[in-house]
């Protein structure tokens, strides 16, 4: 199974070569497996090269989408990718992009410790933090953020523009909170919070409301 696809590091990205006789479905399944295993080869923003003419055009398109979903560029030509206009913008309709971002946001990253000052968590998906987010710490998520503890740091949910994202914490008192492109900051007079709250967008403003846990 693991020999179906072999990966070779190049200056500008990763070159994929496929075993002789491997079917497209096998290749696709294998690549998806590798992508989801959190393999450190597949760093976001890396370009993946597939030899031109190996697969049919529509099959290439399927792979392109799969890599895009994992934040990578796809190319059939061995050259430095033109980074200025990301190809995916032209290739997909906005509704399609939104659908993908929602799918992404439905995944979740679990962090089982306190995020201390100076530390940063970044995820394309939603984030669950079992611990506190201390002052000076940052959490940036494509989806929503759930904090089982006190949030005093900087949180940004829906970082790709998802206005339905929310931030929940047992005690929500962030220094600054962003949801999609809307920013709110803590009041200058700090207030004590004793109940779990959820922050979300309503009428283009970030509002806090109590939630039961």
């Amino acid at each position: 199974m693991s020999d179906i696809v072999s990966i070779k590091g190049l200056k500008y990205g990763l070159q994929l070569t496929f075993a002789k006789g491997a079917s497209f479905d096998d290749v696709q399944a294998n690549l998806l497996d590798k992508l989801q295993s959190g393999n450190s080869f597949f760093i976001r923003g890396t370009t993946v090269f597939v030899p031109k003419g190996h697969f049919a055009e529509e099959q290439n398109e399927t792979l392109r989408k799969m890599f895009h979903r994992h934040g990578m560029l796809f190319s059939t030509e061995l050259k430095r990718p033109n980074l200025a206009p990301p190809s995916r913008d032209s290739a997909k309709s906005p509704s399609q992009k939104f659908k993908e971002s929602v799918e992404e946001a439905q995944k979740m990253m679990v962090i089982n410790h306190t995020i201390r000052g100076g530390q940063e968590i970044k995820a394309n998906c939603s984030v669950l933090i079992c611990g506190n987010v201390n002052p000076g710490a940052q959490v940036i998520a494509g989806g929503s953020i759930d904090i089982r503890g006190t949030c005093r740091g900087f949180v940004h949910a829906g970082a790709f523009g998802d206005k339905t994202a929310c931030v929940v914490a047992d005690r929500l008192m962030p220094a600054q909170i962003r949801i999609a492109d809307i920013i709110a900051r803590a009041p200058d007079e700090p207030e004590k919070v004793n109940q779990a709250e959820r922050a979300m967008i309503r009428d283009n403003q970030i509002i806090f409301e109590p939630v039961a846990r």
Binding site: H113, R116, G118, N134, P135, G136
Partner: peptide, 16 residues
């Protein structure tokens, strides 16, 4: 003092 506590927090993170 908040600056000292903030730095201590950072240091605890680094020690971790």
């Amino acid at each position: 003092e908040i600056s000292a506590v903030r730095d201590a927090d950072k240091i605890i993170g680094e020690l971790g």
